[in-house]
Design a protein around this nucleic acid. Structure first.
Lengths: 240, 240
DNA sequence: ATACGCCAAATTGCATGCCAGTCTTATCTC
DNA sequence: GAGATAAGACTGGCATGCAATTTGGCGTAT
């Protein structure tokens, strides 16, 4: 499968773009893949050394990520990967639910044939990963599924906003994927969304997608509640 | 009235924040107020001279604005204020409609008393400006009205996204305000939204707000269609 | 007269150096 | 022995200088 996630990670040295754009891209991928976790501190000099550039492009990249909300500035104490509170996280899911619902509705009207095949492929990859209990594969295929719908909306503004938001909550989304049963219940939900899009029923696509993403948020809420009841607060800070 | 727009413009030298944050803020205001129009080129040295800083903070500010989508990079040819196509603009309004609808629904459940007064004040300022045919005053009061609802949602993620989107389409929104009758029809729509929020009816608030913003987009569409029919394409490029 | 090519000026991208504020540690005093 | 204070190292913020690329103009040739 040619996933956007994987393809991004496979190109550590894109010579075409500027150095700062390169750093933005690579940092996004690192955060998306969970290699840098919320709360991690981002040291300019360390990053400059890691990416083999000077501090200037690193600083510019961090500014861009800060504007996206992916990293937060702590004044003179440097920057760190954004750490969402539980309330923020649930709010983020409510926003994501609306935006993905809108994307589904517009995709139902605007999707092109090549994106149909891409969506079908992503859906099948999700099914296969769920059957094989391969969480990482499912995570990537799921990303591809949602990304395809976002692109199929042919709404550049929406696509940009959704991408920003997706990256921001991706570290947390990953932990949801690990919840038992979550993968299996996603499959029929994805199927319903895809069917509605394919038959051009924007209202249905929007409704099912909104429910799907809202369920994800509730799943997260349940998980946190469970962990909190188990008494170990540190697990929460560790997982999310 | 204490408008966010006016207060921002009245503080040309905020000494508390960093220089780059300062430049971000002042550039946003200039774009928001229409002093810099879509397509305008942004020269690093000129900006550095204007704001009395070196190029570095200016560059960092531009990076942040680029990440927000407010300005676009054209490679070695510098940056310019983002110029939305007609399709982009209509898409942006569809996104804004959904986000403002969500904000209204959540505000209906979460609004606090001080924001109630702020919302009432903004609504009355809108009415007064509409009666007095004061377009600029209406523009600011309208901004305040929507901003208050966004803040009253107490959804930080939503507030951020909405703010970004609002700034992006604000130059175009201003031209809509100048449409005859647009101010007058906004008043009862605002009133319905406010009433629904005050009685805690999130579903109604959301529905009315979605219709309100969608109407704005359609008003823009009508305006453009009219201008196109009049044969002068340049007016379109000039206005939007 | 027009078109093609080359040179110069300007502008962006990146690196480096210096400064200011913050955190840490060690020493001194109570 | 413990706490407070001061000094030093560290880190982010900004300015400036250099390299690379684009653009505009001018000259020449067709």
């Amino acid at each position: 499968m040619r996933s956007a996630l994987r393809s991004a990670a496979d190109t550590p040295a894109e010579n075409t773009e500027s150095l700062s754009a390169n750093v933005v891209h690579r940092l996004e991928v690192e955060i998306l893949k969970g290699q840098r976790r919320p709360g991690d501190r981002l040291d300019e000099r360390q990053l400059a050394e890691q990416f083999g550039v000077s501090r200037t492009p690193v600083r510019e990249a961090l500014q861009r990520l800060a504007a996206s909300g992916l990293v937060v500035s702590r004044g003179r104490q440097g920057l760190q990967v954004a750490q969402l509170s539980l309330a923020d996280l649930l709010d983020a899911f409510s926003v994501a639910a609306e935006l993905e619902a809108l994307a589904s509705a517009q995709a139902a009207r605007r999707i092109r044939s090549e994106q149909r095949s891409r969506l079908e492929a992503a859906h099948e990859a999700c099914s296969a990963a769920a059957k094989g209990r391969d969480v990482d594969a499912f995570y990537e295929a799921n990303f591809e599924f949602h990304e395809t719908i976002s692109a199929a909306s042919h709404n550049r503004i929406l696509h940009d906003e959704l991408r920003r938001l997706t990256v921001k909550i991706s570290p947390y989304r990953r932990t949801i994927t690990y919840q038992p049963g979550r993968m299996d219940s996603s499959i029929p939900e994805h199927g319903q969304v895809m069917d509605a899009i394919f038959r051009g029923d924007g209202a249905a696509a929007s409704q099912v997608m909104r429910a799907h993403v809202t369920l994800l948020g509730e799943g997260l809420s349940d998980l946190l509640h469970f962990l909190r009841m188990s008494g170990d607060e540190n697990i929460i800070a560790e997982l999310i």
